[in-house]
Design a binder for these strands. Sequence first.
DNA 1: GGATGTGAATGCATTCACAGCA
DNA 2: TGCTGTGAATGCATTCACATCC
Lengths: 226, 226
Amino acid sequence: MTDHSDRRRRISIPAVRRLSLYLRQLEIFQLRNRKTVSSRQLADTLGLTDAQVRKDLASAGQFGHPGIGYRVDELIKSLKHILGIDRTWNVILIGAGNLGRALTSYRGFLKKGFQVVAVFDADPGKVGTVVGNHPVSAMSDMPRIVRETQARMAILAVPAESAQGVADQVIAAGVQGILNFAPVALTVPDELALEVVDVAVQMEQLSYRVTAKRLRPASARADEDE
Amino acid sequence: MTDHSDRRRRISIPAVRRLSLYLRQLEIFQLRNRKTVSSRQLADTLGLTDAQVRKDLASAGQFGHPGIGYRVDELIKSLKHILGIDRTWNVILIGAGNLGRALTSYRGFLKKGFQVVAVFDADPGKVGTVVGNHPVSAMSDMPRIVRETQARMAILAVPAESAQGVADQVIAAGVQGILNFAPVALTVPDELALEVVDVAVQMEQLSYRVTAKRLRPASARADEDE
DNA sequence: GGATGTGAATGCATTCACAGCA
DNA sequence: TGCTGTGAATGCATTCACATCC
């Protein structure tokens, strides 16, 4: 993997997260027909500092034009390539409950190139029903379907109790990345990419800050704008 | 409210986030009738180091018992108090779309003491329909309903285009914390608590790491286990 | 022995400040 | 002049290592 084709830059983890935010904001600027944007402008809309934006973007490549700023179209293209979303990803979804149904019909996924190609549920009563254009498949069909669709990512929208078992199956089926909505810490192999959403945890964070007016200054709020 | 009784400790932002994870894990241990737990055990299940756990918990108070560990029931109670969830919070939800419907019926909220007390939507066609036991209210009723229910937090499940406008209304109605699901950076006053969920952004993070096998070592994955 | 709490050391991310280029 | 890219400085979070207590 050391080949020189993609000169392997070291982009820090928080920086990669912000690259997604820059991209999101750039697409908004693009919609408004902005041609170029400065680090300062980008920073202001996202609640960051201009130095931060420049550091991040410079760590990902040489995209800026001194005296001009960053060309919107150009930077969008570069960021998409770096994030690996200059293509379509097939994704499977496990859990045909309320959340699962909401996620299959979420337009934002498709707009970003993530396509749900199959839905699974452990409940035999749900297998065969239709969720977001997809017939719900049995868990036992997962290895075959993952192979056929070449899906490399999975979204887990299952109860906490079954999440670890489902994760194990998903990984065994060959998936390399998991977005976990279940409120439980998963044990997964090192080489698997894992992202987590726990809405209850996030409500607790709000509770903490709202309680006793322990509100944080704006400067500290930037990093959570994910 | 309690002035001196709560000596105002300085808990770092990442530490507060992890407190929620400790609590979540402790409740699992409690369900299994564990009476005490060591920093090492807590750390292992969450993919952290034992020193990290001790630092975090010590920064929040003196909860441990040398030679014993932490008493599960005791620590759960303390963490709930610190996070401000030793009570019930009334929450309003804006956006009666797929996601909004899924969230109103999410049991995990109620289990943690967050109760959705009203649902709003800007679409007059949706006003009056029932979503998760609640009749959908018009946006114009928000100030009154927030006052009456004493809701201090809001969940935004609206399209990106309308999110800023909705946020402004929610804030004007007196809400102090917002959980934003819309894929856009909100501009809010410093004193407002803001948490963000952008599932597309998180899929992009998966894409980045799955692409070209740029997978991160396990040690670096801990901080995302939120 | 077993486990916490914590100062000291380390490592990392952010911010500063400025050289350099358009 | 305007704006980027980047070494240097700072600040913060994590890890280490050990004194302390049951």
